[in-house]
């Protein structure tokens, strides 16, 4: 089924009678993209499900105030990214029993994750990615896996293109080093 354009979804939303349809099309269009974006940040499927639900609920509540200064997908990605980072912070705060940082726990959980189908090299790559700081991790995933242009990333992460390029190259270098040494 072809997806509605962002403009069409927004015009459906503006009309009270077709608001439910707008929600349906919004979810249909963006659920998969946002799911994979969140999944690469929070790693576990169950956590991703929680964050994705919160993201859409937040989007729905805030859609009335969406000023269309940025594109809809940029706004959605920004909310999804912020929700994921907030979730990780809460998880780290809640987990007082472990002395290890949250990234280490995520890395460990990958090994037992039934929803992870990667082979040994893919597992190693994911572990390498998890050694990066949060922001670098997001930049690397968006560029390497999603092949997002720097300009779009800049709008989503509200960071300059130059800083993003530097961040990606530092991340790639660190991953290479990790893969060589491990």
């Amino acid at each position: 089924m072809p997806h509605y354009s962002d403009e069409e979804i927004l015009s459906l939303y503006r009309d009270e009678s077709s608001r439910n349809m707008a929600l349906h099309h919004l979810i249909q269009k963006y659920q998969q993209k946002l799911y994979w974006h969140i999944r690469k940040i929070v790693i576990s499927h169950d956590d991703t499900d929680d964050v994705l639900q919160n993201t859409f609920i937040k989007v729905w509540k805030g859609l009335a105030g969406f000023k269309e200064e940025s594109q809809l997908f940029t706004w959605l990605y920004r909310i999804a990214t912020n929700e994921s980072l907030t979730f990780l912070k809460q998880k780290a705060r809640a987990n007082t029993t472990s002395i290890h940082p949250i990234e280490y726990q995520l890395s460990k959980s990958l090994e037992s994750d039934t929803f992870f189908s990667g082979d040994e090299i893919q597992l190693k790559l994911q572990k390498a990615i998890l050694t990066l700081p949060e922001k670098q991790r997001i930049v690397f995933n968006m560029r390497y896996y999603d092949e997002t242009p720097y300009e779009q990333m800049s709008e989503i992460l509200e960071t300059s293109v130059g800083a993003l390029k530097a961040s990606y190259h530092i991340a790639a270098k660190k991953i290479e080093e990790f893969l060589v040494t491990n």
Binding site: R39, H45, F115, S117, Y144, A172, I175, E176, V180
Partner: peptide, 19 residues
């Protein structure tokens, strides 16, 4: 990506799955 040999050699695939 060419300047990062190992990353370049790895297949770019999504290792995560969903039901």
């Amino acid at each position: 990506l060419k300047s990062y040999e190992i990353l370049y050699s790895i297949d770019k695939e999504n290792p995560f799955v969903v039901s």
